[in-house]
Design a protein around this nucleic acid. Structure first.
Lengths: 208, 208
DNA sequence: TGCACTATTTCAGTGAGTGCAGTTTCTGTG
DNA sequence: CACAGAAACTGCACTCACTGAAATAGTGCA
């Protein structure tokens, strides 16, 4: 909610990022990088939010204005970024089978997560050092998941629509989480990782 | 680790539960019930661990000796209970295809979670009141998930064994999480909910 | 230059979860 | 029944993630 995409008075093409935007972006990158570095240096458990903030040159409060969680700063998942998932889901469901709609929305969302090539090696190190980060915690995704279930339920038929929706969303997030882990571990793009995971899933080689 | 199953000097048939065991069980039930009641009364966010402990008549410290998380007390997931998942996985994988092995182990684990019929209505109320609890957070499951991935990787072949294992485990947990939510929302047994979810999954009606 | 808007900061606070040291409560044994 | 050893329970002090409110600084624009 905090970090909703600015409209910069125009709807598309944000031609002039503006000094403000630029600074914000820099600050974020600084925090993200600091988080990664510190985890490599000291290990996840020994890194505090304050340490990250300090290294990035901001106050602790500012840190939490950008990232809703210590973990999210490491993963680079911005607060509010996920709003778009929900917004995009309705139109997608209107013109595609739910299977494709969900996949597309999740993929697009991953595409929107900025991924600095410079940080890839750092991320690999993080993943090598911290198995705890392999599976991203559900954390603040609760809200989105529930909203997605609500929306999807409306598009499904039958008595058990809600349950089906719930399971589907859970599975979708399982794939997304996997994509995150794979992307970080291998240093590849999130979307590429997502495609790979989906391919594994579809081929039945990751069957359950 | 704390709450590993006691052997009571004999291997099978725990004939004499003993006073100690009994009290422990009672205390746990009291905490679990208190947690549920308080959430219904005040909402998840407004319930503190201290409140639960106080109502159950134990110290806060004792509360955290039994439950690793406030959330786990509400859900009734005991600390250390999950060790058995890992223990059971190896033998299961040795005699079954991994698909069946994983399903069986997850199901058995759910079967081991005590579910008091008295609490079912309470749980329904909790689920109705708290959408946040619909999807159980990954929380302290990190460790188990990673161990499961390690084990499963050993049983798979090919270059991408680890990735496949990772996706499979993620999916397995997605189903398990769903089962939890369904069980609480509908007031049915965890295993029944699990079977139902798996049925949805297998039938392709919860496809993704 | 001055005004509106927003990011940042400072401050004070809540509450989860942990380690430790000490005490109580049970259980098996002689 | 007494007693030693093991669990479980407790109190305490502490760390740290995260939040709300109010003050402040920095930008973009007229």
């Amino acid at each position: 909610m905090i970090d909703a995409e600015e409209t910069t008075t125009a709807r598309a093409a944000p031609a002039a990022p503006g000094l403000r935007e630029l600074k914000k972006k820099q600050t974020r990158e600084a925090m993200h990088r600091a988080a990664l570095e510190l985890v490599v240096e000291h290990g996840y458990a020994n890194v505090t939010a304050e340490m990250i903030a300090r290294r990035a040159g901001v106050s602790t409060r500012t840190f939490f204005n950008h990232w809703s969680t210590k973990e999210s700063a490491i993963l680079g998942i911005l607060t509010g970024q996920s709003d778009s998932v929900v917004t995009r889901l309705v139109p997608a469901l209107e013109e595609l089978p739910h299977r494709e709609a969900l996949r597309q929305v999740m993929r697009d969302t991953l595409a929107a997560v900025p991924s600095d090539p410079e940080l890839r090696d750092l991320k690999k190190e993080v993943m090598a050092r911290e198995p705890k980060l392999h599976s991203i915690s559900t954390g603040n995704l609760h809200t989105i998941q529930n909203e997605m279930v609500d929306i999807l339920t409306g598009f499904l038929e039958g008595e058990d629509a809600r349950e089906r929706a719930f399971v589907i969303v859970q599975l979708a997030f399982a794939l997304t989480r996997s994509a995150f882990a794979v992307a970080m571990a291998r240093g590849i793009e999130l979307t590429a990782a997502f495609d790979e995971v989906v391919e594994l899933y579809d081929s039945g080689r990751a069957d359950i």
